[in-house]
């Protein structure tokens, strides 16, 4: 296999892999930017994957499937928002509970929502159509970069969504409010902003994007339903948020690096490298790289005196008469 071809294929695989991560990470960036830590991503993504798949399986309508995934994702993060904002629960166990609930429920429903012919199990079913790659003539023929123009609609949408998310965060009045609420909710409240409302809105939006991220897996990347098919991606999302320093634009870098390493490890395994390096090592290498990346970011952050720091109020509840 020639090198150019290998790299092009690797990039294509990276984009396919990274799409799901990018949606969920963008969602979590917005949620955390308002000060809410949502550790429920793994559960929400899996629920999104299930909702998307079962809708597509039963109706054949991919767009309806996406909407269902977002709806379910939004609903699960609404539970998280209610616990953390209204009930002022500790955000860490609340998020963990969402993950456990979400994964459990998704796996349970996965074995109930299938056709009778398959013992009501969704596993092993095919959907009538999936989000396939759409090649743009000429552009997709460019070596290496051509891979950017031979992706699914879900990835093309990201080309618009990520710049918009950055612009929204740093250039619009709504982004200003989001940043203020996560950094100093008291100040935001004193300026007449409803901290609870903003936190509800962006926690739910974050969950909708995570649901969409899950649906990317079951409708495009591996168009099927499998128990626990997110395989810990919801946790990688949490790491990627730190890696992207809560900046929507940098989400691209994080997802490309992580998606790239995961794809590389698949390619290397396929290329028979496992003779030299044990496959288990290749399997956990993306997570090892995540650890290294997080440690590096922390060190850089200290050097830069906190300019990459997390939102100051992240993980804390807020009420105006708190002392």
């Amino acid at each position: 296999m020639n090198m150019l071809d290998f790299i092009t294929k690797l990039l294509a695989a990276t984009l396919a892999m990274g799409t799901s991560l990018a949606y969920a990470t963008l969602g979590e960036v917005y949620t955390q930017k308002t000060g809410i830590l949502n550790l429920g991503m793994e559960g929400i993504m899996l629920m999104g994957a299930l909702a998307g798949f079962t809708t597509a399986f039963n109706t054949g309508n991919l767009y309806l499937a996406l909407m269902m995934a977002m709806l379910v994702g939004g609903f699960f993060s609404l539970i998280h928002a209610f616990l953390c904002i209204t009930m002022r629960a500790n955000q860490v166990p609340a998020g963990l509970a969402i993950t456990m609930f979400g994964t459990g429920l998704a796996n349970f429903l996965g074995e109930r929502l299938g056709p009778a012919s398959n013992g009501y199990n969704l596993t092993g079913m095919n959907i009538p159509s999936k989000f396939s790659n759409i090649a743009i003539p000429f552009l997709s023929d460019i070596p290496i970069l051509g891979a950017l123009f031979d992706v699914s609609l879900l990835t093309y949408a990201l080309y618009l969504l990520i710049p918009f998310a950055w612009f929204f965060m740093y250039k619009t009045k709504h982004g200003m409010v989001v940043r203020a609420v996560g950094e100093n909710p008291r100040t935001a409240a004193s300026m007449g902003i409803s901290v609870s409302k903003i936190r509800y809105i962006y926690t739910v939006i974050g969950g909708m994007l995570a649901g969409l991220g899950g649906a990317c897996l079951s409708l495009s990347f591996t168009p099927s339903w499998n128990e626990g098919m997110t395989g810990g991606k919801g946790w990688i999302v949490i790491a990627l948020v730190i890696f992207s320093t809560w900046n929507p634009a940098r989400v691209v870098i994080g997802t490309l690096v992580f998606g790239g390493i995961t794809s590389l490890q698949f390619s290397l395994q396929a290329a028979g490298l496992k003779m030299v390096i044990p496959s288990q090592f290749l399997g956990f290498s993306p997570y090892l790289i995540t650890l290294v990346a997080l440690a590096t970011m922390t060190i850089i952050n200290q050097k830069k005196k906190g300019s990459f720091a997390s939102p100051s109020a992240l993980g804390t509840s807020f009420a105006i008469d708190d002392k």
Partner: peptide, 17 residues
């Protein structure tokens, strides 16, 4: 009541309807 990592101007107009 100021947001530490935002600019003077952003702080001044923050939350204006």
């Amino acid at each position: 009541m100021l947001v530490g990592n935002m600019s003077v101007a952003e702080n001044i107009v923050l939350g204006m309807k």
